[in-house]
Design a protein around this nucleic acid. Structure first.
Length: 955
RNA sequence: GGGGAAGUGUCGGAAUAGGCAGACGAGCAUGACUUAGGAUCAUGUGCCGCAAGGCGUGCGGGUUCAAGUCCCGCCUUCCCCA
C-alpha cells in the first residue's frame, strides 16, 4: 500500500512537525506553500510577458471574454467564481494551440461613484480609479492569464471619447433620436431608467430598490426596435436556451393585423377632415372582429378629449386623473376589478358597420400597440370582465371546442379563448379559428382597405438618457437657431468637468456647471447649451469587447467620422468573441444591447459580422453560507419589551446537543442568537424573538475561546441568502487566498457547485480540495518510503488512468463541466498514489506526472508551474501543448458485466473485452448465481446490451 | 394568470445515446501513526434488516427485457413575464 507521508497543511509554519523522511538517501520534504510560490510565478509570468496576446497570422485565434466588473471597491467571491473557471478554459484553449486573447477591464461609470461622492465628499473619478487600482491588484492574485496591456476602463476619456463617437454615428444613422415620452424615473437615483432596469412586481429601480414613477420627459432613445426581428434570430450563435427564451419573450413579437375603425362622423367635432377619426387597433385575433362590441382607449389616448361628449367630460377627466396615479402593474393586473368610463362616442366596426361604444379604461396602455383595442368580450378574459361589469353585449363569434363541450351555454359563463370555428361572422362562418381564420380575415381586410397584416413588439426603444454626472456625456448641443446640433467629431471627447461638485441632493452636477453648460453652436457659432444628460452605462459595455482590441485607440489625436474606434487589423484578427461568460441576470439588458450594437455597427460599415459573441455560457451565484447562531442563556430583568442582561453564558452553535432549554421567564432568557448589533442581541426564546440589551463592557464567557469575549464574538444565525455586507455573510476572497492560496480557491470554486447553478458557500468543503492539492504536491515531491517491483498490470493501469483523465478533462473543459474536471483529476491523482511505490523510478512515472501537471496547468496554474520546474521540465508548463489521449489505451483486457434477471442484478461475469455476444451470453447463463435464478424457470429472452449489461428474462 | 428551469444519500453533486444509481468530495464512524491532533494514512458509509433479502432518484400512472433519463397527470421550489 502506498504511504502518503509528509503532507503538511498549507498554513503550518515550516519545521518541527513536518515528518522527516529518510529513504534512499535522505530527502527532506518540502512543504507546499502557496503564499510563496504564487506571487513568485505571477511576477515571473508578468516579467516574461507570458500572457501578452499579439496577432499571429500563423495561429488560429481564440477570443475568450468574461464580463467586466463594476469597480465597487473590493473583489467579491462571485468575481472569482465567474472569472477563474473562464480563465481555466482560456488557458486550455491556449495549450490546444490557439492564440488566445483574454482581456479584462472595468465598467467604471455609474451611480455608486456619485453616491460615494455625496457620502464621503470624494470625487467620483477618484473613488472609481482608486477602486480600479485595488481590484486590479486583487485580480492579479487570481493567477489569471489576463492580458493587462489591453485593459480598458470605461470612465477614462480615451475610452468614452469613442462611446460618444458611437453615439454620433448612431445619430447620423437615425438610430439615436430624442422624444418626449412617459419614462420610468427613479426618484431616489434622480434619473430615468431603461425599461429593462425596472424590475419586479413592484416596479422598483434595479439599482437602488426604490419604487419607480412615470414622468413625461424629453429623452434620447436608441432605435433598438429596428433590429427586433434580427435579434430574434439566434441561428448564428451558440447561446443557452434560457437566454434565448428570455430575449425572445422580451422582444415579444406578435403577429396579427392592424384594423382601422372610424369614429362615427356625428361624434367628431365640426371641421374634422376625412381620416381624422380613424382609430387603428392592433389585434392578434382579427378573426374575432365580428364579436367586437365596444372599443377601449388608453386614458392618455390623444383622441379621447376630442371625442368625449359634453355630458361625459367630467367623468372622463376624473378617470384620467385617477389612472395617471397608478403604475403599470396596478393597471394591468388581471385579477383587479375592471374600471372604465364611457366617452359618449361611438365607433364603426369595419366588418359589419355596427355602432359600438368607445370607452376608456386603465387596462389599456398607451405604450402597447396603438393605445386602443377592440374588445371581444366572448373570447378575451379582460374584455369579458369589463363587459360583464358594464352590461355590454357578449356575442359568440367562435364556436370553441370548450364551449361546445360544455353544451354551448348562453349567456357565456366566462370567456372562451380557445380554438374552434367562426360563427356569426357573415361569409367566414365555419372557418377554423384561429388558423386559417386569422390569415383569411386579414387578407380580406387588406382587400377592403380596412386593415392589413401587422406585427407588434413588446420591445421598446432603449432609453439611454440619465440625469447623472458620472457617465459618458451625450455629445449634443442645443442652439436657439439651429436646434439640436451634434458635437463635431474632431471636438471629441466632450470631457466631464473634473471640478464639478456633486450636489448633496443627488442631482446632476452638470446642470450647475457653467463651464460645461455653455458652449457655442458648431453650426452657427452662437452661444448654445450642452446636453447635460449622460449615457446609460450599458452604452459603455455594449462595445467594450472591441475596445480591448486597441484600448484608448488614437488617444490624444483628433478624429473624424471616418475613423474607427479600434485598430482595424486587431478587429479583423480577433473579433468576434469566441466564448463569452458572465451572469445570466444580464439576459435582456447587456446581452441584448451588445447584440444590437454589433448589428448597428455592421450597418455602419464598421464591422463585417452579425453577432458579438459566438458562444455564451452563464455561471450561477455563490450565496452566503447558512449557519446556526450561538445559544445564549441570559439572566437579568425585563425593561419594557426588552430584557436587560446582567449575565450571559454562551453555548456555541456547533454544540446544539448541549444547549440549555430555550424560553423566557421573569429573570431569564435563553435561545439561539438570531441577530446582533453593538448593544443588543435578538434571541429566539422558544416561539418568541426577544431583544436583549447588553451593558457596555459586559464580560461574556464563550467556551473554547481563550480570552474573555465581547458581544461581537457571539455568532448569530445566518440563512442561505445572497451575500451582502449588511447581512454579514460575505466570503472575502483575499482572506481565502491568504489562507489556502489562489490555486486551492480556484479549484474549489470549480469543484463545489455546478457552475451554471451556484449555491451556498460551504467552508468545510474546501478542505477536500486542500487535501487533494497537498496529495498532488506530495505525489511529486516526496520520495516513497518503500518500493515494490513494477508489474505489467500496474503499468497498464497507470496508462489507462492517464488516458482516461486526459479524455475526461479535455471534454469537460470544452463543455464547461468544471466540477467533474476536478473529480477526474482527483481520480487520476488517487490512481497514481496507489502506483507510486511501484512506479517511482520508472519512465512511466515521469510521463504520468508530467501529464498530470499539464492537465492541472489551466486549473491550478502556479502549482503546475512549480512542480513542472521541480521535475526538471523546461519553463513554462503554460506554453506546452495540451496532451491527447489514445482511445486504445482506455480499453481494458477484461471487463465485468452485470447480469440482470427480470430487471434485477443477480450476478456479474468477467469476460474478455473483445468477446462476442454469444460468448457473453453463454458466460452469463453459466454464472452460478444466475443459474440459481434461472433454475426451473423458462428463459424467454437474453439481451446482450453491448458490453454494458446482460438482461435475462425468465418466467 | 402565462412561460421556463429544477426536484437524486446528512450536504455539494456524478451518471455518453434508455443499460450496475450515488463517481468525486464534505460530513460521520472505526482503526493506524502520534507527547498531542481540528494533521496525515487506512477502512466503512443510500435506507430497512442479524441475515437471506427487500426498498430506493418529489408523488401517481404508462412504454420497455431495462427508466433518474422517454410519455401522461399531479405536487413543491426557484427564475422570468404579466
Amino acid at each position: 500500500m502506498a504511504k502518503h507521508r509528509g503532507i503538511n497543511p498549507p498554513l503550518k509554519a515550516p519545521g518541527s512537525h513536518a515528518p522527516v523522511l529518510f529513504s534512499g538517501g535522505s530527502k527532506m520534504t518540502k512543504p507546499y506553500r502557496p503564499q510563496e510560490i504564487e506571487p513568485k510565478w505571477q511576477q515571473r509570468w508578468e516579467a516574461d510577458a507570458l500572457y501578452r496576446s499579439v496577432i499571429d497570422a500563423e495561429k488560429p485565434k481564440f477570443y475568450a471574454l468574461t464580463m467586466l466588473p463594476y469597480p465597487s471597491g473590493d473583489l467579491h467571491i462571485g468575481h472569482w467564481y465567474a472569472m477563474t473557471p473562464s480563465d481555466a478554459r482560456a488557458r486550455f484553449k491556449r495549450m490546444q494551440g490557439y492564440n488566445v486573447l483574454f482581456p479584462m477591464g472595468f465598467d467604471a461609470f455609474g451611480l455608486p461613484a456619485e453616491n460615494a461622492a455625496i457620502q464621503r465628499g470624494i470625487h467620483p473619478g477618484t473613488w472609481t480609479l482608486r477602486n480600479v487600482a485595488n481590484m486590479r491588484q486583487q485580480m492579479r492574485t487570481m493567477g489569471t492569464m489576463f492580458d493587462w496591456q489591453r485593459e480598458a476602463v470605461s470612465c477614462l476619456p480615451g475610452y468614452y471619447r469613442w462611446t460618444e463617437w458611437l453615439f454620433l454615428k448612431f445619430y447620423e444613422m437615425g438610430l439615436a433620436y430624442r422624444k418626449k415620452s412617459p419614462v420610468d424615473y427613479c426618484p431616489s437615483c434622480k434619473t430615468t431608467l431603461a425599461r429593462e432596469q425596472v424590475v419586479g412586481e413592484e416596479h422598483i429601480c434595479e439599482r437602488c430598490g426604490a419604487p419607480v414613477i412615470k414622468k413625461d420627459l424629453e429623452q434620447w432613445f436608441f432605435r433598438i426596435t429596428k433590429y427586433a426581428d434580427e435579434l430574434l434570430d439566434f441561428s448564428k450563435i451558440d447561446w443557452p436556451d434560457k437566454i434565448r427564451l428570455l430575449q425572445t419573450n422580451w422582444i415579444g413579437r406578435s403577429e396579427g393585423a392592424e384594423v382601422t375603425f372610424t369614429i362615427a362622423p356625428e361624434d367628431l367635432p365640426a371641421g374634422t377632415v376625412e381620416g381624422d377619426g380613424d382609430l387603428v387597433v392592433f389585434t392578434t385575433r382579427p378573426d374575432t372582429l365580428w364579436g367586437a362590441t365596444f372599443m377601449v382607449l388608453a386614458p392618455e389616448h390623444p383622441l379621447v378629449d376630442r371625442i368625449t361628449k359634453a355630458e361625459y367630460r367630467e367623468a372622463v377627466a376624473a378617470y384620467k386623473q385617477q389612472a395617471a396615479r397608478q403604475n403599470e402593474i396596478e393597471r394591468l393586473a388581471t385579477d383587479k376589478e375592471k374600471t372604465g368610463v364611457f366617452t359618449g362616442a361611438y365607433a364603426i366596426n369595419p366588418v359589419n358597420d355596427a355602432r359600438i361604444p368607445v370607452w376608456i379604461a386603465d387596462y389599456v396602455m398607451m405604450t402597447y400597440g396603438t393605445g386602443a383595442i377592440m374588445a371581444v368580450p366572448a373570447h378575451d378574459e379582460r374584455d369579458f370582465a369589463f363587459a360583464s361589469k358594464f352590461d355590454l353585449p357578449i356575442p359568440t363569434v367562435i364556436e370553441t371546442e370548450e364551449w361546445v363541450a360544455e353544451g354551448r351555454p348562453f349567456p357565456l359563463p366566462h370567456a372562451y379563448p380557445g380554438t374552434g370555428r367562426m360563427i356569426n361572422s357573415a361569409s367566414f362562418d365555419g372557418t377554423p379559428a384561429p388558423h386559417p381564420a386569422v390569415e383569411e380575415v386579414t387578407a380580406w381586410l387588406a382587400e377592403q382597405g380596412r386593415g392589413k397584416a401587422a406585427v407588434n413588439y413588446k420591445l421598446r426603444d432603449w432609453l439611454i438618457s440619465r440625469q447623472r454626472y458620472w457617465g459618458a456625456p451625450i455629445p449634443m448641443i442645443y442652439c436657439e437657431n439651429c436646434g439640436i446640433v451634434p458635437v463635431s467629431y474632431k471636438d471629441l471627447p466632450v470631457l466631464l468637468p473634473a471640478d464639478a461638485e456633486i450636489p448633496k441632493t443627488g442631482e446632476n452636477a452638470l446642470l450647475y456647471h457653467e463651464g460645461y453648460l455653455h458652449t457655442t453652436c458648431p453650426k452657427c457659432g452662437r452661444p448654445a447649451r450642452r446636453e447635460t444628460d449622460t449615457m446609460d452605462t450599458f452604452m459603455c459595455s455594449s462595445w467594450y469587447q472591441y475596445a480591448y482590441l486597441s484600448p484608448y485607440y488614437r488617444e490624444g489625436e483628433s478624429v473624424t467620422g471616418k475613423d474607427t474606434p479600434w485598430d482595424p487589423a486587431e478587429l479583423a484578427y480577433w473579433a468576434p468573441v469566441d466564448t463569452y461568460t458572465g451572469g445570466a441576470e444580464h439576459a435582456v439588458m447587456h446581452l441584448m444591447y451588445t447584440r444590437f450594437f454589433t448589428k448597428a455597427l455592421r450597418d455602419a460599415g464598421l464591422l463585417d459580422f452579425d453577432e458579438p459573441m459566438l458562444q455564451y455560457r452563464y455561471q450561477g451565484i455563490i450565496l452566503g453560507e447558512p449557519r446556526d447562531g450561538d445559544c445564549v442563556e441570559v439572566s437579568g430583568a425585563w425593561a419594557g419589551n426588552a430584557f436587560q442582561a446582567s449575565d450571559i453564558t454562551v453555548t456555541p452553535f456547533d454544540q446544539r446537543e448541549n444547549w440549555p432549554p430555550a424560553g423566557k421567564s421573569e429573570s431569564r432568557v435563553c435561545g439561539e442568537v438570531m441577530d446582533r448589533d453593538d448593544v443588543s442581541l435578538k434571541v429566539q426564546a422558544g416561539d418568541e424573538l426577544v431583544v436583549v440589551h447588553v451593558p457596555e463592557g459586559q464580560e461574556i464567557v464563550i467556551p473554547g475561546k481563550e480570552s474573555m469575549g465581547g458581544l461581537s464574538d457571539i455568532l448569530y444565525h445566518l440563512e442561505v441568502e445572497k451575500m451582502s455586507k449588511s447581512k454579514k455573510n460575505v466570503v472575502a476572497p483575499d482572506t481565502l487566498v491568504a489562507t489556502y492560496g489562489a490555486d486551492t480557491v480556484r479549484a474549489y470554486l470549480m469543484f463545489g457547485w455546478r457552475w451554471d447553478q451556484g449555491g451556498p458557500w460551504d467552508s468545510k468543503g474546501i478542505e477536500g480540495v486542500v487535501r487533494w492539492i497537498n496529495r498532488v504536491w506530495a505525489l511529486v515531491m516526496d520520495t516513497p518510503r518503500t518500493r515494490v517491483p513494477l508489474d505489467a498490470a500496474t503499468e497498464r493501469e497507470m496508462q489507462r488512468a492517464m488516458h482516461t483523465a486526459i479524455k475526461a478533462v479535455t471534454q469537460d473543459l470544452e463543455s464547461f463541466s468544471f466540477n467533474t474536471i476536478i473529480a477526474r483529476l482527483m481520480e487520476f491523482t488517487n490512481a497514481l498514489g496507489k502506483a507510486k511505490e511501484a512506479a517511482w523510478e520508472s519512465p512511466i512515472w515521469d510521463t504520468a506526472i508530467s501529464h498530470l501537471l499539464l492537465l492541472l496547468a489551466p486549473i491550478t496554474p502556479h502549482l503546475a508551474e512549480e512542480l513542472w520546474e521541480a521535475t526538471g521540465k523546461p519553463y513554462s508548463v503554460h506554453t506546452q501543448a495540451w496532451p491527447t489521449w489514445d482511445e486504445a489505451m482506455l480499453a481494458v483486457d477484461e471487463i465485468e458485466i452485470p447480469v440482470q434477471i427480470n430487471g434485477k442484478v443477480r450476478g456479474k461475469i468477467v469476460v474478455a473485452a473483445n468477446a462476442d455476444d454469444e460468448t457473453v451470453k453463454a458466460a452469463a447463463l453459466a454464472e452460478a448465481n444466475v443459474r440459481r435464478y434461472t433454475e426451473g424457470q423458462q428463459v424467454l429472452k437474453v439481451i446482450v446490451a453491448g458490453r454494458k449489461l446482460v438482461s435475462v428474462v425468465v418466467k
